[in-house]
Design a protein around this nucleic acid. Structure first.
Length: 569
RNA sequence: GACUUGGUAGCUCAGCUGGAUAGAGCAACGGCCUUCUAAGCCGUCGGUCAGGAGUUCGAAUCUCCUCCGAGUCGCCA
């Protein structure tokens, strides 16, 4: 609603300036920093300069244009203040419109059609088999899942792909390690931890025995070519790892449409290599096959000197497979910052091959999880397991419940919902591309700008709404909702759809997260000073309509972020 | 060394396609539960927006330089 008014004003004014001064002016309409200044604000400086008129005259033109338009009734105050043309909206009109808009869609409120059924593939989570599901993959999982939800809400068709890291030289290393110092029963007992031990041990020994690396590469090459013994081990490692990850996905309530990992593309790489050859892009360098990407970018290494493939080879095969299978309009990769170059190389190779869909490929980068200011690494055994983080968060929520609400039923279930959502929200509230120092205490904070704060707000509203029967019928007295705190909520409610669209366009769940915090904060502040269940029925119901809208949005927004909604806490 | 990215309150961060007096949360301190869930609310304290120069009516935001952190830079993924 507010956005529509902005657009109407902008178009109206730009048209007038164009007609009267033959000048194309960009009219900026923003929200003033301070509420006292009004609801909307137009900086007049730039306009005055563009049409070469003094400020007061320019302001008068704006004033007259608005007052003589059919929309005049939407505004209650128009005033020039220090170069800004400040506008106050007629709150009765806005409240009426927002409530009736909401009535039309209700639970679908905020849905958008900007996606227009376009297909978007999202590659996220993608843990590496035989390694613990780390905090780094947690970021990819949470961010990717949320972006997928947001895109769906905007009318995109989303294909969720878990591109498992189930292939590569690392398996040569693990197979080598298993055959030389592994123990079957230990692995059966505690698969991931034992496999990691093998991996770390391999790297320790390889420091002084460089031959081991060659041997691992040889094993991987044979695995790639179908060596049965190695394949059996690989299958086994993959299976036990996946079983482990499924527990996490269940806890996070995350699903995928495809679990095609790197190995799936084992037989799909040769055609890509052939095509590169045929297009004369592949050249030999130091025994390896590369694609030269010009001076500004290091070449892409497609095939190692021993003939085996690399990450980028598989990613290229995967990309073509996705293009021909899903016919995507966009293909997103939710992968850490450190792989920026990799995706630039992929795009560049695609372009060199003569395809034009390189601009449909987008690296949704996110910041590293640092420990003591440094990148975490499995090789050095420095890794934080996700399950441990989640369990710690759940444990803490339970302690909170016992302290705050000892009579609550199903404490364990609620604790799980709160704990997991706390971790999710903690990640999504910040801009994704920034690095993030791992800090468990920070992650499971339950006060302030946190997941539990949002859940608590929703629970509080639910408690009021359910205190006695109430029907949402859109019958309100709009003159009641004119207190500043109420009108601020109404304005924010009307911006939900735009917020989701912006989050979708920028692949930034944090935009939605911040929005939800603002809305929750407005409500809590309102709750502190206004009684909802008052004697007067119309006033009470009008307020409950407002709260219903707020709760719907909070719940909808939390679901989009991948959080759980709670009835009581 | 080159490229990428970041530096805003004690801590974690928002604001960055230029706009009014730079905002939140945490921490610290002080208030508010016989009335709708105190995981909350209200208030106080806290800033050379890393430093410098430039563009502009106007710069945390744009440009350039310097300093500091992180990441990447062919046989890992």
């Amino acid at each position: 609603m507010i956005e529509q008014i902005k657009i109407i004003l902008k178009n109206m004014l730009e048209k007038v300036f164009l007609m009267e001064f033959s000048t194309a002016v960009n009219v900026i309409i923003e929200a003033p920093k301070r509420k006292e200044q009004g609801d909307l604000s137009i900086p007049v400086f730039t306009i005055a300069k563009a049409i070469n008129q003094p400020l007061p005259e320019t302001s008068n033109i704006i004033m007259n244009t608005i007052q003589s338009s059919q929309y005049a009734s939407l505004f209650s105050q128009l005033i020039l203040m220090g170069g800004f043309f400040n506008i106050r909206l007629n709150s009765n009109e806005v409240v009426k419109k927002v409530v009736s808009d909401y009535m039309l869609t209700q639970n679908q409120y905020g849905s958008s059609t900007i996606g227009n059924n376009k297909v978007v593939c999202i590659d996220y989570s993608s843990p590496n088999i035989a390694k613990p599901f780390s905090i780094g993959h947690l970021r990819s999982t949470i961010i990717g899942h949320a972006i997928g939800n947001i895109l769906e809400k905007c009318g995109y068709q989303v294909v969720r792909i878990n591109h498992l890291g189930d292939f590569g030289t690392q398996f040569g290393k693990i197979i080598y390690a298993y055959q030389h110092f592994g123990n079957e029963s230990l692995i059966q007992k505690d698969p991931i931890n034992e496999l990691v031990k093998l991996y770390v041990e391999f790297h320790e020994l390889a420091k002084t025995n460089p031959d081991m690396d060659d041997e691992a590469r040889r094993i991987f090459k044979e695995l790639e070519q179908g060596n049965e013994e190695y394949n059996k081990l690989w299958q086994w490692f993959r299976k036990v790892s996946l079983e482990d990850y499924m527990e996490v996905y269940k806890l996070l309530n995350v699903q995928f449409d495809s679990y095609n990992g790197e190995a799936f593309y084992n037989d799909k790489m040769q055609p890509v290599i052939d095509e590169l050859k045929q297009k004369d892009l592949l050249k030999e360098d130091d025994g390896a096959m590369i694609v030269d990407l010009g001076e500004n970018m290091p070449p892409a290494l497609i095939q190692k000197s021993d003939g085996s493939t690399l990450y980028i080879t598989r990613d290229l095969a995967a990309l073509f497979y996705r293009k021909y299978t899903y016919h995507f309009d966009k293909c997103l990769y939710v992968v850490g910052n450190e792989q920026k170059l990799h995706f630039e190389q992929i795009k560049s190779v695609i372009r060199k091959m003569g395809y034009n869909f390189d601009n449909q490929i987008e690296h949704i980068n996110f910041g590293l999880v640092l420990q003591d200011g440094k990148k975490m690494s499995t090789r050095k055994g420095k890794v934080v397991k996700l399950v441990d983080v989640l369990n710690e968060a759940i444990k803490l929520s339970l302690a909170y419940i016992v302290e705050k609400n000892p009579d609550l039923e199903d404490k364990d279930i609620v604790a799980e919902k709160i704990g997991v959502s706390a971790v999710i929200f903690n990640d999504l509230k910040n801009y994704r591309a920034n690095d993030f120092e791992f800090n468990l205490e920070e992650m499971v904070r339950f006060e302030g700008q946190t997941g539990p704060y949002l859940q608590y707000t929703s629970v509080r509203i639910g408690s009021i709404l359910n205190s006695e029967p109430f029907v949402f019928d859109g019958i309100i007295d709009e003159t009641i909702l004119t207190r500043e705190s109420e009108f601020e909520m109404i304005k924010l409610i009307s911006q939900y759809q735009m917020t989701i669209e912006k989050a979708a366009e920028e692949s930034s769940p944090s935009i939605l997260a911040k929005y939800l915090l603002s809305l929750a904060s407005l409500f809590n502040s309102y709750y502190g000073k206004e009684k909802i269940n008052v004697e007067d029925t119309l006033e009470k119901n009008t307020k409950k309509h407002l709260l219903t809208m707020v709760k719907t949005i909070l719940d909808s927004g939390m679901s989009l972020l991948g959080m759980q909604i709670i009835e009581k806490m």
